[in-house]
């Protein structure tokens, strides 16, 4: 039997050690976020290196859920995510299907899509076009202008091309229309692929920040990520959170430090991603997403 030499064992051992350390480094920020968000004022301010709070308190969570701005932003982000993912999915899959079939002009349309990888108008002209299509300060600005990712479109098109032609031919002979073929044959066969892409689209919408900064000026329309920035990075805890005097009083009574409030809000914003993650992983592990690594 093949025996591992000592140097082989050290080699394997050190690799495993390094990977364990890397994993801990990757997980630590999440852990720290949880710990800080449940810490009390005394714990946070007085104990130096803190890995475990003396007592777990919900003050920070009470503060954020008392804030109308925060709760409202969750609502609007859920809307943008659900509506946006639906629009993305319908737009991408219908165009991908049309391009997967041998329709006249297909080459030209494909070229049109591929060219957008190489060149684009950039931030300002895109902004001006979106402005002139009347989407500024509407949630459609976060849904319509990015609804087809050229990468995803091409991958889904390739998948549709892989569906055996015999299925289509048989259906055509049976007198099925193109509509029926798409709805009754192609779409049901593509469920797993479409599910994978909808997850990726959904994560994208949930995390959208820059577009929201660009296109939403009205602070009552802000989505979650923008409110998080106000809260954590700009430190405007009192501005965003405590519009009512009562809420402001509660904050002073409880003496909740802004950092714990920030971490609580960030944790709430991360939970949906963590819930989706096992499903996401199932899909990209299969290699479905290899082509869209950059996205």
């Amino acid at each position: 039997m093949y025996r591992k030499s000592l140097s082989e064992k050290t080699f394997d051992g050190s690799i495993i050690l390094l990977l364990v350390l890397t994993s801990l480094l990757m997980l630590f920020p999440f852990y720290y976020m949880i710990v800080i968000s449940f810490s009390s004022y005394d714990d946070y301010m007085r104990h130096g290196v803190m890995l475990w709070p003396k007592q777990w308190v919900l003050d920070a969570y009470r503060s954020i859920f008392e804030s109308r701005a925060f709760v409202r932003s969750i609502g609007s982000t859920v809307f943008v995510t659900v509506a946006g993912t639906l629009v993305d999915l319908i737009m991408t899959s219908s165009m991908a299907y049309a391009l997967s079939r041998d329709i006249p002009g297909r080459k030209f349309f494909n070229m049109m899509v591929v060219f957008t990888f190489l060149f684009g108008g950039g931030m300002i002209p895109t902004y001006l076009i979106i402005k002139s299509t009347g989407l500024i300060d509407t949630y459609w600005a976060l849904i319509v202008p990015g609804c087809i990712s050229a990468f995803n479109l091409i991958i889904i098109r390739q998948f549709f091309r892989g569906i055996p032609n015999e299925l289509n031919d048989a259906a055509l002979i049976d007198g099925a229309s193109e509509v029926k073929i798409f709805v009754l044959i192609v779409l049901p066969l593509s469920k797993p692929v479409l599910a994978a892409f909808s997850l990726f689209y959904a994560v994208g919408h949930w995390n959208t920040f820059f577009d929201a900064i660009l296109y939403l000026n009205d602070s009552t329309k802000w989505t979650l990520q923008v409110v998080l920035r106000q809260l954590v990075i700009l430190g405007n805890v009192s501005d965003t959170l405590h519009q009512s005097p009562e809420a402001r009083m509660t904050q002073l009574e409880h003496q909740t430090p802004p950092e714990t409030i920030g971490m609580a809000a960030v944790l709430v914003a991360t939970i949906p991603i963590l819930l989706l993650y096992p499903f996401l992983q199932k899909h990209f592990a299969k290699g479905v997403m290899l082509g869209s690594i950059k996205g």
């Binding site: 049309a98 349309f109 108008g121 002209p125 798409f182």
Partner: peptide, 20 residues
């Protein structure tokens, strides 16, 4: 099926290029 996507590409990808 192609039309909505085509309009999308023209309006939000190609018009900004001309906007340059």
């Amino acid at each position: 099926l192609l039309l909505p996507g085509l309009i999308y590409f023209i309006v939000y990808k190609y018009l900004p290029m001309f906007g340059l």
